[in-house]
Design a protein around this nucleic acid. Structure first.
Lengths: 138, 138
DNA sequence: ATAAACCCTATTTATTTTATAGACTTTATT
DNA sequence: AATAAAGTCTATAAAATAAATAGGGTTTAT
Protein backbone atom coordinates (compact mmCIF):
# COMPACT_ATOMS: atom_id res chain seq x y z
CA UNK A 1 0.00 0.00 0.00
CA UNK A 2 1.04 3.54 -0.65
CA UNK A 3 1.81 5.82 2.27
CA UNK A 4 -0.44 8.78 2.90
CA UNK A 5 2.37 10.97 1.68
CA UNK A 6 2.25 9.41 -1.75
CA UNK A 7 -1.51 9.39 -1.80
CA UNK A 8 -1.65 13.05 -0.90
CA UNK A 9 1.00 13.80 -3.50
CA UNK A 10 -1.19 12.20 -6.13
CA UNK A 11 -4.17 14.25 -5.02
CA UNK A 12 -2.09 17.40 -5.12
CA UNK A 13 -0.71 16.63 -8.56
CA UNK A 14 -4.20 15.90 -9.79
CA UNK A 15 -5.44 19.18 -8.38
CA UNK A 16 -2.56 21.06 -9.97
CA UNK A 17 -3.16 19.26 -13.23
CA UNK A 18 -6.77 20.38 -13.22
CA UNK A 19 -5.78 23.97 -12.58
CA UNK A 20 -3.08 24.44 -15.15
CA UNK A 21 -4.90 27.48 -16.44
CA UNK A 22 -4.25 29.32 -13.15
CA UNK A 23 -0.75 30.67 -12.76
CA UNK A 24 -0.39 29.27 -9.27
CA UNK A 25 -2.34 27.25 -6.73
CA UNK A 26 -2.16 27.68 -2.96
CA UNK A 27 -1.15 24.83 -0.66
CA UNK A 28 -4.08 25.97 1.40
CA UNK A 29 -6.57 25.32 -1.38
CA UNK A 30 -5.34 21.81 -2.05
CA UNK A 31 -5.25 21.00 1.65
CA UNK A 32 -8.75 22.29 2.15
CA UNK A 33 -10.16 20.51 -0.89
CA UNK A 34 -9.03 17.16 0.47
CA UNK A 35 -9.07 17.83 4.21
CA UNK A 36 -5.34 17.28 4.48
CA UNK A 37 -3.13 18.98 7.07
CA UNK A 38 -1.68 22.12 5.49
CA UNK A 39 1.72 21.62 7.06
CA UNK A 40 2.00 18.00 6.07
CA UNK A 41 1.11 18.83 2.51
CA UNK A 42 3.65 21.62 2.53
CA UNK A 43 6.46 19.12 3.06
CA UNK A 44 5.14 16.94 0.30
CA UNK A 45 4.88 19.74 -2.24
CA UNK A 46 8.37 20.82 -1.37
CA UNK A 47 9.65 17.34 -2.20
CA UNK A 48 7.78 17.34 -5.47
CA UNK A 49 9.33 20.68 -6.26
CA UNK A 50 12.85 19.51 -5.44
CA UNK A 51 12.28 16.55 -7.71
CA UNK A 52 11.50 18.89 -10.55
CA UNK A 53 7.81 18.12 -10.92
CA UNK A 54 6.54 21.41 -9.58
CA UNK A 55 7.53 25.04 -9.74
CA UNK A 56 6.65 27.65 -7.19
CA UNK A 57 6.42 31.33 -6.68
CA UNK A 58 7.14 32.83 -3.28
CA UNK A 59 5.50 35.73 -1.57
CA UNK A 60 2.08 37.23 -1.85
CA UNK A 61 0.23 35.92 -4.86
CA UNK A 62 2.57 32.95 -5.01
CA UNK A 63 1.86 29.25 -5.01
CA UNK A 64 2.67 26.05 -6.87
CA UNK A 65 2.23 24.97 -10.45
CA UNK A 66 2.92 21.91 -12.55
CA UNK A 67 6.18 22.18 -14.38
CA UNK A 68 5.90 18.97 -16.38
CA UNK A 69 3.36 17.59 -18.74
CA UNK A 70 1.00 15.17 -16.98
CA UNK A 71 1.96 12.50 -19.52
CA UNK A 72 5.56 12.85 -18.35
CA UNK A 73 4.77 12.11 -14.73
CA UNK A 74 4.53 8.34 -14.32
CA UNK A 75 3.26 6.78 -11.11
CA UNK A 76 6.65 5.11 -10.71
CA UNK A 77 8.28 8.51 -10.29
CA UNK A 78 5.89 9.73 -7.61
CA UNK A 79 6.00 6.47 -5.69
CA UNK A 80 9.77 6.26 -5.70
CA UNK A 81 10.06 9.81 -4.58
CA UNK A 82 7.82 9.57 -1.55
CA UNK A 83 7.59 5.88 -0.73
CA UNK A 84 10.90 4.54 -1.95
CA UNK A 85 11.48 1.27 -3.75
CA UNK A 86 9.07 -0.30 -6.21
CA UNK A 87 10.68 -3.70 -5.83
CA UNK A 88 9.19 -6.02 -3.23
CA UNK A 89 12.57 -6.89 -1.74
CA UNK A 90 15.58 -4.65 -1.08
CA UNK A 91 17.95 -7.13 -2.75
CA UNK A 92 16.16 -6.56 -6.01
CA UNK A 93 15.64 -2.83 -5.89
CA UNK A 94 17.16 -0.74 -8.67
CA UNK A 95 17.29 2.56 -6.81
CA UNK A 96 17.42 1.42 -3.20
CA UNK A 97 19.40 -1.82 -3.29
CA UNK A 98 20.37 -3.50 -0.02
CA UNK A 99 21.34 -7.10 0.60
CA UNK A 100 18.96 -9.29 2.62
CA UNK A 101 20.51 -10.41 5.89
CA UNK A 102 18.89 -13.83 5.86
CA UNK A 103 20.04 -14.69 2.36
CA UNK A 104 23.16 -16.82 2.11
CA UNK A 105 23.80 -16.51 -1.59
CA UNK A 106 22.03 -13.93 -3.69
CA UNK A 107 23.17 -15.65 -6.84
CA UNK A 108 21.44 -18.87 -5.84
CA UNK A 109 18.29 -17.34 -4.35
CA UNK A 110 15.14 -18.36 -6.15
CA UNK A 111 13.14 -15.75 -4.30
CA UNK A 112 15.41 -13.04 -5.61
CA UNK A 113 15.16 -14.30 -9.16
CA UNK A 114 11.38 -14.37 -9.11
CA UNK A 115 11.16 -11.01 -7.37
CA UNK A 116 13.37 -9.46 -10.02
CA UNK A 117 10.86 -10.61 -12.62
CA UNK A 118 7.99 -9.26 -10.58
CA UNK A 119 9.81 -5.95 -10.30
CA UNK A 120 10.33 -5.70 -14.04
CA UNK A 121 6.71 -6.40 -14.78
CA UNK A 122 5.45 -4.07 -12.07
CA UNK A 123 7.69 -1.34 -13.34
CA UNK A 124 6.20 -1.64 -16.80
CA UNK A 125 2.80 -0.94 -15.31
CA UNK A 126 3.83 1.96 -13.13
CA UNK A 127 5.94 3.63 -15.78
CA UNK A 128 3.11 3.34 -18.21
CA UNK A 129 0.44 4.95 -16.05
CA UNK A 130 0.83 8.69 -15.72
CA UNK A 131 -0.85 11.70 -14.22
CA UNK A 132 -2.52 12.12 -17.59
CA UNK A 133 -4.39 8.85 -17.07
CA UNK A 134 -5.62 10.09 -13.74
CA UNK A 135 -6.73 13.40 -15.21
CA UNK A 136 -8.66 11.85 -18.07
CA UNK A 137 -10.58 9.81 -15.50
CA UNK A 138 -11.55 12.74 -13.32
CA UNK B 1 8.18 -3.54 -0.05
CA UNK B 2 7.29 -6.79 1.62
CA UNK B 3 7.44 -7.00 5.40
CA UNK B 4 9.99 -9.30 6.97
CA UNK B 5 7.13 -11.57 7.91
CA UNK B 6 6.28 -12.17 4.29
CA UNK B 7 9.90 -12.47 3.31
CA UNK B 8 10.53 -15.04 6.03
CA UNK B 9 7.38 -16.88 5.02
CA UNK B 10 8.73 -17.19 1.51
CA UNK B 11 12.04 -18.50 2.80
CA UNK B 12 10.22 -21.00 4.98
CA UNK B 13 7.99 -22.17 2.15
CA UNK B 14 11.01 -22.52 -0.09
CA UNK B 15 12.79 -24.55 2.56
CA UNK B 16 9.77 -26.77 3.05
CA UNK B 17 9.41 -27.13 -0.69
CA UNK B 18 12.97 -28.31 -0.95
CA UNK B 19 12.43 -30.87 1.79
CA UNK B 20 9.22 -32.48 0.69
CA UNK B 21 10.91 -35.85 0.92
CA UNK B 22 11.20 -35.50 4.72
CA UNK B 23 8.03 -36.13 6.64
CA UNK B 24 8.45 -33.00 8.73
CA UNK B 25 10.80 -30.08 9.13
CA UNK B 26 11.58 -28.34 12.41
CA UNK B 27 10.97 -24.61 12.90
CA UNK B 28 14.38 -24.64 14.44
CA UNK B 29 16.06 -25.86 11.27
CA UNK B 30 14.45 -23.22 9.08
CA UNK B 31 15.22 -20.49 11.58
CA UNK B 32 18.81 -21.56 11.83
CA UNK B 33 19.30 -21.89 8.10
CA UNK B 34 18.30 -18.27 7.58
CA UNK B 35 19.31 -16.76 10.91
CA UNK B 36 15.73 -15.86 11.75
CA UNK B 37 14.35 -15.64 15.30
CA UNK B 38 12.81 -18.98 16.15
CA UNK B 39 9.86 -17.46 17.96
CA UNK B 40 9.08 -14.97 15.23
CA UNK B 41 9.13 -17.68 12.62
CA UNK B 42 6.88 -19.78 14.83
CA UNK B 43 4.09 -17.21 14.52
CA UNK B 44 4.53 -17.04 10.80
CA UNK B 45 4.37 -20.80 10.29
CA UNK B 46 1.27 -20.93 12.42
CA UNK B 47 -0.40 -18.42 10.14
CA UNK B 48 0.60 -20.37 7.10
CA UNK B 49 -0.85 -23.45 8.69
CA UNK B 50 -4.13 -21.74 9.54
CA UNK B 51 -4.35 -20.60 5.96
CA UNK B 52 -4.11 -24.19 4.82
CA UNK B 53 -0.70 -24.05 3.20
CA UNK B 54 1.09 -26.12 5.79
CA UNK B 55 0.37 -29.15 7.92
CA UNK B 56 2.02 -29.93 11.21
CA UNK B 57 2.64 -32.72 13.63
CA UNK B 58 2.89 -32.01 17.31
CA UNK B 59 5.11 -33.59 19.92
CA UNK B 60 8.45 -35.26 19.69
CA UNK B 61 9.41 -35.99 16.12
CA UNK B 62 6.91 -33.45 14.93
CA UNK B 63 7.31 -30.44 12.66
CA UNK B 64 5.84 -28.78 9.59
CA UNK B 65 5.31 -29.90 6.02
CA UNK B 66 3.91 -28.48 2.81
CA UNK B 67 0.33 -29.47 2.30
CA UNK B 68 -0.13 -27.90 -1.14
CA UNK B 69 1.63 -28.28 -4.43
CA UNK B 70 4.17 -25.48 -4.95
CA UNK B 71 2.43 -24.58 -8.19
CA UNK B 72 -0.76 -23.95 -6.19
CA UNK B 73 0.85 -21.38 -3.92
CA UNK B 74 0.91 -18.06 -5.74
CA UNK B 75 2.80 -15.08 -4.36
CA UNK B 76 -0.49 -13.20 -4.13
CA UNK B 77 -1.71 -15.67 -1.51
CA UNK B 78 1.34 -15.39 0.71
CA UNK B 79 1.48 -11.62 0.46
CA UNK B 80 -2.18 -11.15 1.25
CA UNK B 81 -1.92 -13.45 4.20
CA UNK B 82 0.96 -11.76 5.92
CA UNK B 83 1.11 -8.26 4.48
CA UNK B 84 -2.47 -7.57 3.59
CA UNK B 85 -3.72 -5.81 0.50
CA UNK B 86 -2.11 -6.04 -2.91
CA UNK B 87 -3.84 -2.88 -4.09
CA UNK B 88 -1.92 0.36 -3.65
CA UNK B 89 -4.89 2.14 -2.10
CA UNK B 90 -7.48 0.89 0.39
CA UNK B 91 -10.37 2.21 -1.72
CA UNK B 92 -9.39 -0.20 -4.46
CA UNK B 93 -8.57 -3.27 -2.42
CA UNK B 94 -10.56 -6.42 -3.12
CA UNK B 95 -9.99 -8.12 0.22
CA UNK B 96 -9.32 -5.17 2.50
CA UNK B 97 -11.50 -2.40 1.14
CA UNK B 98 -11.75 0.87 3.06
CA UNK B 99 -12.80 4.27 1.80
CA UNK B 100 -10.18 7.03 1.63
CA UNK B 101 -10.97 9.88 4.00
CA UNK B 102 -9.67 12.58 1.70
CA UNK B 103 -11.70 11.44 -1.30
CA UNK B 104 -14.94 13.31 -1.90
CA UNK B 105 -16.45 11.06 -4.52
CA UNK B 106 -15.07 7.61 -5.20
CA UNK B 107 -17.07 7.39 -8.39
CA UNK B 108 -15.39 10.48 -9.79
CA UNK B 109 -11.88 9.80 -8.53
CA UNK B 110 -9.35 9.42 -11.31
CA UNK B 111 -6.76 8.13 -8.89
CA UNK B 112 -9.07 5.32 -7.88
CA UNK B 113 -9.80 4.38 -11.47
CA UNK B 114 -6.14 4.20 -12.39
CA UNK B 115 -5.24 2.36 -9.22
CA UNK B 116 -7.90 -0.24 -9.92
CA UNK B 117 -6.20 -0.90 -13.25
CA UNK B 118 -2.81 -1.10 -11.58
CA UNK B 119 -4.26 -3.57 -9.09
CA UNK B 120 -5.66 -5.79 -11.81
CA UNK B 121 -2.40 -5.90 -13.69
CA UNK B 122 -0.34 -6.42 -10.55
CA UNK B 123 -2.61 -9.23 -9.51
CA UNK B 124 -2.04 -10.98 -12.81
CA UNK B 125 1.67 -11.02 -12.07
CA UNK B 126 1.41 -12.15 -8.49
CA UNK B 127 -1.15 -14.84 -9.17
CA UNK B 128 0.97 -16.16 -11.96
CA UNK B 129 4.20 -16.51 -9.99
CA UNK B 130 4.17 -19.42 -7.56
CA UNK B 131 6.38 -21.20 -5.12
CA UNK B 132 7.19 -23.54 -7.96
CA UNK B 133 8.89 -20.69 -9.83
CA UNK B 134 10.99 -19.98 -6.79
CA UNK B 135 11.94 -23.62 -6.40
CA UNK B 136 13.00 -24.07 -10.01
CA UNK B 137 15.33 -21.10 -9.56
CA UNK B 138 17.02 -22.39 -6.44
C1' DA C 1 5.85 48.56 6.08
C1' DT C 2 2.97 44.81 6.03
C1' DA C 3 0.85 40.69 5.10
C1' DA C 4 0.78 36.71 2.29
C1' DA C 5 2.93 32.80 0.82
C1' DC C 6 6.53 29.43 0.21
C1' DC C 7 11.12 27.42 2.57
C1' DC C 8 13.49 24.67 5.85
C1' DT C 9 14.66 21.90 9.86
C1' DA C 10 13.55 19.83 13.99
C1' DT C 11 10.61 17.59 17.08
C1' DT C 12 6.67 15.08 18.73
C1' DT C 13 3.08 11.73 18.37
C1' DA C 14 0.92 7.74 16.55
C1' DT C 15 1.05 3.52 14.31
C1' DT C 16 2.95 -0.56 12.69
C1' DT C 17 6.35 -3.97 12.59
C1' DT C 18 9.45 -6.92 14.76
C1' DA C 19 10.72 -9.55 18.46
C1' DT C 20 10.27 -11.83 22.91
C1' DA C 21 8.12 -14.31 26.78
C1' DG C 22 5.95 -17.85 28.92
C1' DA C 23 2.54 -21.08 29.90
C1' DC C 24 -0.06 -24.94 27.52
C1' DT C 25 -0.82 -29.21 24.77
C1' DT C 26 0.51 -33.14 22.25
C1' DT C 27 3.32 -37.19 21.33
C1' DA C 28 7.44 -40.46 20.97
C1' DT C 29 10.42 -42.76 23.77
C1' DT C 30 12.32 -44.98 27.76
C1' DA D 1 4.34 -43.25 34.14
C1' DA D 2 7.89 -39.92 33.42
C1' DT D 3 10.37 -37.12 30.45
C1' DA D 4 11.70 -34.35 26.83
C1' DA D 5 10.70 -32.61 22.35
C1' DA D 6 7.93 -30.06 19.55
C1' DG D 7 3.99 -27.33 18.03
C1' DT D 8 -0.02 -23.87 19.97
C1' DC D 9 -1.61 -19.71 21.71
C1' DT D 10 -1.92 -15.11 23.69
C1' DA D 11 0.09 -11.23 25.46
C1' DT D 12 3.51 -7.81 25.84
C1' DA D 13 7.73 -5.10 24.88
C1' DA D 14 10.95 -2.89 21.86
C1' DA D 15 12.18 -0.79 17.64
C1' DA D 16 11.30 1.36 13.53
C1' DT D 17 8.61 4.08 10.52
C1' DA D 18 4.99 7.18 9.22
C1' DA D 19 2.25 11.09 10.19
C1' DA D 20 1.67 15.31 12.05
C1' DT D 21 3.03 19.62 14.21
C1' DA D 22 5.82 23.64 15.30
C1' DG D 23 8.03 27.73 14.43
C1' DG D 24 11.19 30.77 12.60
C1' DG D 25 13.09 32.30 7.89
C1' DT D 26 12.76 34.31 3.25
C1' DT D 27 10.56 36.38 -0.63
C1' DT D 28 7.40 39.46 -2.91
C1' DA D 29 3.03 42.16 -4.12
C1' DT D 30 0.71 45.92 -2.51
Amino acid sequence: MLSKKTKYALHALTYLGKHRDSKTVLIHDIAEEHGISHKFLENILLELKKAGLLGSKKGKGGGYYLIKEPKDIPLSKVIRLLDGPIALLPCVSINYYEPCAECKSEAACGIKKVMAEVRDETLKILENKTLEDILTNE
